[in-house]
Design a binder for these strands. Structure first.
Length: 841
RNA sequence: GCCGGGGUGGCGAAAUGGCAGACGCGCCAGACUCAAAAUCUGGUACUGGUAACAGUGUGCGGGUUCGACUCCCGCCCCCGGCACCA
């Protein structure tokens, strides 16, 4: 053993050992104590940096910790290997996506190994391999057969830079989440998954996910956006020639209670019947011009206008079915076609947007809900009254509190046949077609005779052809590959054409976690029995950026796969941990940015491992702060972790003789001297604290702090040749405890020291230490003495000291006397074993 | 606007209603050294005081309590999500 900590020698040695001895291989047919620990699989971008590290190091620490606690831990890893970057790189460099992707995978695999992160590589999968995407395609056909996959022409988000459509979830503030280009609206025929069918279940089951962070559940709730309301049909006042395409204009409202205050109605500029409704009217040109202009303006422009509203009168009127009143129909872009029915009943007195619009165009305003505290007066009101109140001027509903009126008025609509209670969701169907090359081909065939036909199971996979010119043109690259496109119709045999779009890569990642139980099985997509045994995943670890996208889609897929009777569970992830990002300050502008290649603020992990070793990088990464919060990388901070490990190494080396001598000494508290006994107690207290910090909320930063603190106690206690056997044994126990508890974070050094201290088996098979309750007892305890809640003194007394005795001693203390002098003692609180508080005034 | 999470030393942070600032970084002083690095020892919230000690202190204002970073009420600010969503 060397005095100097030789991390560069021991780390590769143990990595090879763990790998060669299959310490992370899991027999999933052994279902005793299963613990499935999964880290979100990475996109093989080519190089990992310390910002990525948090995810894998955290997950690895959990896996090692659970293993030591006796769980049968499953930790597989794979590659989210389809996607745009490889394709874009190929366009630049000419290297085919497949080649660069496979190369990146092998580089990253080595990097993960160099961090000491261990996986069961027998289960490795890559979403770009035909033996994986065969089943992605098979699942697509299953969805199609259940009418959960459909092709429809719709207004879609188009990213001009990526030259493909995007899902709503991939549009952030009107821009592409990947390249930040402004998204355009296009009208195209595209494939969708009917996630909206699952909206209610996706919402309801969030309540069962106790192991998920609130913020993620909230984000999903917001995204699903359920609102309860009433749909009301306003009859269109017909024109003389009876040429209208519709008789009613239905609208959705959450505030049917305000309907007697409705003074006009508004439809969205994209309202389908609008053109017909205004045909031949003097308003026709104005309405059409308005609609055209509105659709040309981007979301960003619309948002920039804020409260300033615009619109035009259509020349038509509709009838409020509650009071038979005729109100004008307007068009305005403050009404969205994508939500509700695209038409809104306007109640300016009780809605801020309607108020602004009515004021601008001097439309009538009528109060129908009165403020119980200050009766409202239209002539003096300065803004819409949106709070609760009592209905006025509302026919038979007058006098009702407005919240009570809603169900009554909805029931009335149903009775009268002009409306009903409904529920609206903000969630839209998931658009999964992509006009790009590097993805799984959509396994569908367009036959001139039979229409759209799914590729039969026996013909799967539809293999992605390799010699394709995939420069983005807006057309799907596969469409140019005749060898790929031409196919006989599986039903009638005539010449047909394949679907040329590929699938969104989020489809690939929506079910990969199920595939680790049978990654090489070419007979079925999913092993039902194995999945039922191992799911839901005990611990899923990943970035918050997937709060909606991946995590919502995966929940949807799990429910669909459940409904296909391929698994028996409804939710994939029991516990979810979303780690914060690692950021680094930009030297030029002083701002904090997420560590990324684009921002040029990455800290290269290879260099750090070379200079400090993987264990140091791991310990610092976990010590940097609470793992769910963002953290700022500090180049000096890593020195602390480095010193700590060096000190541990040195201590074991220096005290090697005493530690070895104590190897077989049974611990006996009663024959320990005070110093040894104190150290033994401190070690046990530390076990308690560290175990608490590891469980639950993953307070790994605190766990490491406690372990550091124990090493400080070890150093201040010390041991030498003159120490007696029990002292040496206590010292050894404390060192053993440090090594065991630190091993999930710094596995290499701990494995090395563990063996050095005479253990034959891997520390991975060592037990997590347990608290010796007997050690926690003290003969003497320190009591905090407070006067009026302020610390005034401390008192060391025998543990058996009576309450009364303690009180007397405390009151006699000069520091206490000083502060109660001249005051009356009102109360004395004695918390046994802890403190005394004297209330005096 | 609605929802979620935060606000504690110079910095990262820690505290089942019970000693605020553990642990680490940085800094200061000392030891070792010809010197430096490494290492070790001590100190380090603020104000006053040589010190003992006293006062103040967990975003702001109230409240509950013997006792509040922690619980309750009302604000302010920061971060994240949703948003002309009817």
């Amino acid at each position: 053993m060397n005095e100097k900590y030789p991390f560069s020698q021991i780390e590769p040695r143990w990595q090879t050992y763990w790998n060669d001895n299959g310490l992370f291989k899991t027999d999933h047919t052994d279902t005793r104590n299963p613990y499935y620990c999964l880290m979100m699989f990475p996109y093989p971008s080519g190089a990992l940096h310390v910002g990525h590290g948090r995810n894998y190091i955290l997950g690895d620490a959990v896996a090692r910790y659970k293993k030591m606690q006796g769980f049968n831990v499953l930790t597989p890893m794979g590659w989210d290997a389809f996607g745009l970057p490889a394709e874009n790189a190929a366009i630049k460099t000419g290297t085919p996506p497949k080649e660069s992707t496979l190369k990146n995978i092998s580089v990253m695999k080595e990097q993960l190994a160099s961090w000491g992160v261990s996986y069961d590589w027998d289960r490795e999968l890559a979403s770009c391999n035909p033996d994986y995407y065969k089943w992605t395609q098979w699942l697509f056909t299953q969805l199609y057969k259940r009418k959960l996959a459909y092709k429809a022409e719709a207004a879609v988000n188009w990213c001009p830079d990526c030259a493909t459509v995007l899902a709503n979830e991939q549009v952030v503030d009107g821009a592409c989440e990947r390249c930040e280009s402004e998204v355009e609206e296009k009208f195209l025929a595209q494939w969708f998954f009917k996630i909206t069918d699952y909206a209610q279940r996706l919402l309801d089951d969030l309540d069962t996910l106790d192991g998920w962070p609130d913020r993620v559940k909230t984000m999903q709730r917001n995204w699903i956006g359920r609102s309860e309301g009433t749909e009301i049909n306003f009859a269109l006042v017909p024109r003389d020639d009876q040429t209208d395409p519709i008789e009613h204009v239905p609208c959705f409202t959450t505030r049917v209670d305000t309907i007697y205050g409705c003074t006009y109605m508004v439809v969205a500029p994209e309202y389908p019947a609008l053109k017909e409704l205004v045909k031949g009217l003097e308003q026709e040109e104005a309405v059409n011009t308005y609609s055209r202009n509105a659709s040309k303006r981007t979301n960003i422009e619309r948002m920039a206008e804020g409260d300033e509203k615009s619109g035009v009168f259509t020349g038509r009127t509709v009838i409020n079915p509650y009071n038979g009143e005729e109100v004008p129909l307007w068009v305005s872009d403050y009404v969205l076609m994508g939500y509700g029915t695209g038409a809104v009943m306007a109640v300016p007195a009780h809605d801020t947007r309607d108020w602004a619009f009515a004021k601008k165009y001097t439309l009538p305003i009528r109060v129908s809900i009165d403020n119980p505290d200050h009766p409202l007066d239209v002539t003096t009101m300065e803004e819409a009254y949106t709070a609760n109140g009592t209905l006025i001027d509302s026919a038979e509903f007058t006098g009702s509190p407005n919240r009570d009126a809603i169900p009554k008025m909805a029931a009335y609509a149903t009775e009268q046949g002009f409306g009903e209670s409904t529920i609206q969701f903000r969630l839209r169907d998931w658009l999964i077609s992509r006009q790009r090359y590097w993805g799984a081909p959509i396994p569908m065939i367009h036959c001139p005779a039979c229409g759209t036909v799914p590729v039969p199971d026996k013909d799967l996979p539809v293999v992605l052809p390799e010699n394709v010119d995939f420069k983005p043109t807006g057309e799907s690259p596969l469409a140019t590959c005749e060898a790929f496109m031409n196919v006989a119709c599986p039903e009638c045999g005539v010449d047909a054409r394949r679907e040329s779009d590929t699938m969104d890569t989020f489809v690939d990642s929506s079910w990969y976690f199920l595939r680790f139980l049978n990654a090489t099985d070419d007979t079925q997509a999913i092993d039902k029995q194995a999945c039922n045994d191992w799911f839901p995943i005990s611990q899923y670890v990943g970035g918050i950026e997937h709060a909606i996208l991946h995590l919502l889609y995966s929940r949807f897929f799990t429910k669909v796969i459940h409904d296909l009777d391929l698994i028996d569970f409804n939710e994939p992830f029991a516990q979810l941990f979303t780690q914060g990002m690692i950021c680094k300050r930009n030297e030029e502008d002083g701002q904090l940015y997420k560590m990324s290649k684009g921002k040029g603020n990455v800290v290269n992990s290879d260099e750090l491992i070379r200079d400090y070793g993987a264990d140091t990088v791991r310990v610092y990464t976990m010590f940097i702060g609470p793992p769910e919060k963002d953290a700022e990388w500090n180049d000096q901070g890593i020195e602390g972790a480095s010193r700590f490990l060096k000190r541990l190494w040195r201590r074991v080396w220096e005290k090697h003789d005493q530690l070895t001598a104590a190897a077989n000494t049974p611990l006996d508290i009663d024959s320990m001297e005070p110093a040894g006994r104190d150290l033994y107690r401190t070690a046990n207290e530390t076990i308690q604290h560290v175990t608490d910090a590891m469980d639950g909320a993953f307070h790994f930063n605190s766990a490491i702090a406690q372990i550091m603190s124990l090493l400080n106690s070890i150093d201040s206690t010390g041991v030498d040749d003159n120490s007696n056997d029990q002292h040496k044994a206590s010292y050894r126990f404390a060192i053993d405890t440090v090594i065991r508890m630190l091993s999930p974070f710094a596995p290499h050094i701990c494995e090395e020291l563990w063996r050095e201290l005479g253990n034959d088996d891997s520390i991975l098979r060592a037990e997590w230490p347990k608290v010796d309750e007997a050690s926690l007892a003290r003969d003497e305890i320190e009591i905090i003495i407070q006067v009026n809640g302020k610390l005034r003194d401390k008192l060391t007394v025998s543990a058996s000291c009576s309450k009364e005795d303690l009180e007397t001693q405390a009151l006699a203390l000069p520091a206490v006397q000083k502060h109660i002098d001249g005051k009356t003692i009102r109360k004395v609180i004695v918390v046994p074993g802890k403190l005394i508080n004297i209330a005096a005034s």
